[in-house]
Simulated scan of single mutants.
Amino acid sequence: MAGYKIRDLEMLTGIKAHTIRMWEKRYGLLKPQRTATQIRTYSNEELLLLLNISLLNKKGYKISRIAEMSPEELFQTSREVHESKSSDTSIEQFIVSVLNLDEQLFHNTFRELTQKTSLSEVFSERIIPFLRRIGVMWLVGTINPAQEHFISNLIRQKIIAAIDALPIPEAGQKKILLYLPEHEWHEISLLVYHYHLRAKGLNSIYLGQSLPYEALLKTVQLLNPTLIVSSWLTAIEPQEMCNYFFRLTEDFPHITIAASGYQVDQLKNQLPKTIRHLNGIPDLDQLI
């Protein structure tokens, strides 16, 4: 069973920790267990309950009214009011869709978002923050491989379909290479970047997952790109990663090199100063 700390719930639901504590004390909405050191821990069921409480609260329901509902009434009301357009509950809905393996909920939420705003904004402002939130679930063991594969494949389908609908850029343009290094398979953020660049009419070329270094070297020599972008999420020895980037800067001294992902976030101060750290589409736009 999952054992969320209150800070985990704060990140996953968007509800401040002090508010959660107040709701516990005043309304008894949650009943956390306590560790030997008196630290509150919450179950997966309590996370799901709090997500639905958050949905209703954002839709204008007072917390005192929510506290009077039975669990069945609360979940049913949450599902009914989701169809209204009064506020954005998309990330909470995405999380619920993962927990329940609910493809229809994911599809409906995604469709509603794309009716309101551009796909680039949906991917960068909703999908990427959502993936960061469910990363917490991995840390506490809530998301199993089936759930992770379920949501990753749904998101990949949406992004790849969007890319496929765009025109192929003219060959004469400057080229931007995107790839994942060897042993790296988490491609959603790079697919988002690839879509964004293509949507701007730029000639981005995605080389895929787990690309051997020698293959990258030959491709760069063939295409002579102006920018190379990679993403690093899977755990790697810090020295190995640093050596990789120092080799990149030596082999491609006249090409801008950018990288994103959790491992880059952790080691950015140890990487060569010329490596550009990407923390989202605004950073990418500055490079192009």
Rank of each mutant, 00 (worst) to 15 (best):
V136C: 04
R7G: 10
Q157W: 02
F245D: 00
F150W: 07
I288R: 07
T77D: 06
Q76Y: 09
L233R: 08
A67S: 15
K200F: 04
W138Y: 03
E125T: 08
A36R: 12
R40Y: 11
I236F: 00
F106N: 02
N44V: 08
A2K: 01
W23G: 10
H149A: 06
S70D: 14
F110A: 11
I168H: 13
K116P: 01
I6Y: 05
R26W: 09
T114Q: 08
I95E: 10
L56Q: 01
E92P: 05
I236C: 05
I6S: 03
P272N: 13
L217S: 11
R133Q: 12
V81K: 07
Q76D: 13
H107A: 06
P272I: 09
L191G: 09
Y61S: 03
F130Q: 03
D283G: 11
S231E: 09
E80T: 08
T41A: 01
T274G: 12
K5W: 03
V81T: 11
V136A: 04
D265V: 08
Q173H: 11
I176A: 00
I205S: 08
Q93M: 12
V220T: 09
D251Q: 04
V264E: 02
A146Y: 11
A215F: 08
K16F: 04
D102S: 07
C242G: 02
I176W: 01
G60E: 06
T109H: 07
N100V: 08
E125S: 12
H277D: 02
I134Y: 05
P282A: 07
L49P: 04
Q76K: 13
S70N: 10
L177M: 06
Q104P: 00
Q115H: 05
L166A: 11
Q270C: 05
H196S: 10
Y262N: 05
F150Q: 03
L178G: 10
D8M: 03
T249P: 01
D283Y: 13
L191S: 07
L101N: 07
G141C: 08
E214N: 07
D102M: 10
W232L: 03
R7M: 14
T114V: 11
F110C: 05
L177H: 03
L99V: 12
R40V: 13
K59L: 00
K268Y: 14
S90F: 04
E80Q: 10
N52C: 07
L222R: 12
D251P: 04
L248Y: 02
L29N: 01
Y4E: 09
G28V: 14
F245H: 02
M22H: 11
L50V: 13
L166I: 11
L216Y: 00
K218F: 07
E237H: 11
T249L: 00
G208C: 13
F252D: 04
K31G: 08
A171K: 14
N203S: 14
L56F: 02
T117P: 00
S204W: 03
I163T: 04
N243E: 07
K218R: 11
Y27P: 06
Y262W: 01
G172T: 12
F94E: 09
L55W: 01
S120G: 12
G280P: 10
P272K: 13
P145A: 06
